[in-house]
Design a protein around this nucleic acid. Structure first.
Lengths: 189, 189
DNA sequence: GTCTATAACTTGATAGAC
DNA sequence: GTCTATCAAGTTATAGAC
């Protein structure tokens, strides 16, 4: 099981920085130090590896968002923490990078894993929006699902624009702008 | 010059739906009906073609955004039109798809063209935000650059999420949510 | 589980004739 | 400008021994 872990860890890193379709099994072998025979024993095809990586990335992302929000008293503060945590945008989102990859969308299992990761994250945010409306830190007039979708899109889009312009400030501006728009709907304002 | 145009038109379509790195010159030749000799005469390398496509897509996108906004009386309505026009999200953004492609970012000229396209779009939106604040349709408290960056990110992120989930509604929710957040900052509300 | 050898195919061109 | 032939390297595996 050790080599299997080494393969997944290398793949997570390489798929993240270099893309799924543009990373070959051979590159994963070289980075992980695992031989070809072992590689294909653990992952008979490349999509098998991709699916495992997307699933782990989804779990990691959800856990890190939860950790970022933990202990904050109001829903609005938890949403603000999510926006702010977008942080290191130039590397890109661990799952967002898969969405524009044709090689990912062509594989049913891979596509499904990706969709599930996004859906879970959107559901989590929607719950936090509802909590914010209950605790009075956010206007009850906002639709929870739509607001959550907008916040998720801002963060994903911030990664896209930052990569395209090569400037981290593009992402920081986007999340700061979204937070200001959200605060315009804060019942305390 | 005719074959050159056929090549560019095919490449625009294929890069859009299938990605830059995952589309080969051979596929462009097959789709356009242009032979190999002619292809490499017009575009000695693949990045040469990519750069031309990104530049044209940037111009097309800017023109279509301007057209969408044209004639609308207030800045806020022009911003709303931009958000709503995100429309057919499943195909993805014509330039957003290039941002996560490692093969694009590795080529200096291609990267520069992509950054320029996003910067021009952000600048256009920033001007509209200022106009909205002048005509009184948007709160003067919002930072124009950050608000414009947020709106651009919402639209780009909406494409990402819609592709990942396979559901157009993911994108529609995001843009609708953003519009509601923006309206919370409308001085008339 | 891991190794080395092999293979069929694709990629991104280049060469030289017309 | 366009054509056909060719090519070295890389991709995604499979085969069979240890």
């Amino acid at each position: 099981m050790d080599n299997r872990r080494l393969i997944i860890d290398s793949a997570k890193k390489l798929f993240w920085h270099h893309g799924y379709s543009t990373t070959s099994p051979k590159q994963v072998m070289a980075d992980s130090g695992v031989g070809q025979g072992s590689f294909y024993h653990h992952f008979p095809t490349k999509p098998d590896l991709g699916q495992e990586v997307v699933r782990e990335n989804g779990r990691d992302l959800l856990a890190s968002v939860r950790a970022t929000m933990e202990g904050l008293p109001t829903g609005r503060e938890r949403l603000a923490a999510f926006l702010t945590s977008a942080g290191d945008a130039l590397g890109g989102c661990q799952i967002g990078g898969f969405a524009y990859d044709a090689g990912v969308l062509a594989e049913a299992g891979l596509r499904e894993a990706l969709g599930a990761a996004f859906t879970e994250l959107a559901d989590l945010l929607e719950n936090v929006v509802r909590e914010a409306q209950v605790d009075g830190s956010l206007s009850p007039k906002l639709d929870p699902a739509k607001t959550a979708a907008a916040l998720l899109a801002v963060v994903e889009g911030a990664f896209v624009v930052a990569r395209a312009t090569g400037r981290q400030s593009s992402a920081d501006n986007a999340t700061a702008g979204a937070l200001a728009m959200l605060d315009g709907n804060n019942v305390r304002s």
